[in-house]
């Protein structure tokens, strides 16, 4: 039987798994360094943030290039953000803490940066479970409203990154810049549409 021809979306789906395979290879080759648990956890956190940025980049690319049909990719990248963030969370709970809930509870309670990560995760989680077409249909207008909270998730995620920092500012600065550009683009679009909308409203004149 001949394999079905792969669509670009299928190829993209496979490529998004490369970071995970790469990590698996590094585990296998014992290349994660002296603090392997932390290294793995950090790499999963980094990939969650990268996929979040990619997800946010789809709409600007679509607007600027007039390229149609990118929404499937946005969906895919969004689900991968959820996928890597879930692994990041599981790595924290299981790999690092061995599911020792009393220690986890104290650690979360005393580490404010984790609250930010958790808040971001809750948003991403809600977006992921409302991704199926059926959910979208059922939710009607509120779906779009809910899915716009990804903007808050990105701000929470970058704050989470900054807040756990021990010294090196360069990397989170880069991501902050990327996220500001991606959110700034939306702000510009919003301002522009408001301005145009404003022009269409008949202005009341004083006699």
């Amino acid at each position: 039987m001949l394999p079905k021809k792969l669509s670009p979306l299928d190829v993209c789906t496979a490529i998004c798994l490369v970071p995970l395979l790469w990590l698996a290879l590094d585990i296998f080759l014992d290349k994660l360094g002296a603090n392997a648990i932390q290294a793995l956890h950090i790499r999963l956190g980094d990939w969650s943030l990268r996929f979040l940025c990619l997800t946010l980049a789809v709409t600007p690319v679509q607007t600027l290039t007039q390229w149609r049909g990118l929404s499937d990719y946005r969906r895919l990248l969004g689900l991968y953000t959820f996928f890597y963030a879930t692994l990041h969370l599981l790595a924290y709970l299981w790999l690092d803490h061995g599911l020792q809930w009393p220690i986890i509870a104290i650690d979360i309670w005393q580490s404010s940066y984790i609250w930010l990560g958790l808040a971001a995760y809750i948003i991403i989680f809600l977006l992921a479970i409302t991704t199926p077409k059926r959910a979208k249909k059922r939710m009607g207008k509120s779906w779009k409203k809910l899915h716009r909270t990804i903007y808050y998730a990105s701000i929470l995620a970058i704050a989470h990154y900054f807040w756990q920092l021990k010294g090196n500012l360069a990397d989170p600065m880069l991501y902050l810049l990327i996220i500001l550009c991606l959110l700034g683009f939306r702000l510009l679009v919003w301002l522009k549409s408001r301005y145009l909308f404003g022009l269409m409203i008949p202005v009341k004149r004083n006699k």
């Binding site: 061995g98 005393q110 404010s112 756990q164």
Partner: peptide
């Protein structure tokens, strides 16, 4: 006494295996 941004209640010994809980 936690650091203002993170807990000091537990620690990760270098060289621990995956799924090993932290040390108190």
């Amino acid at each position: 006494v936690p650091h203002p941004r993170w807990s000091q209640a537990s620690e990760r010994p270098l060289g621990s295996h995956f799924f090993t809980p932290r040390r108190k």
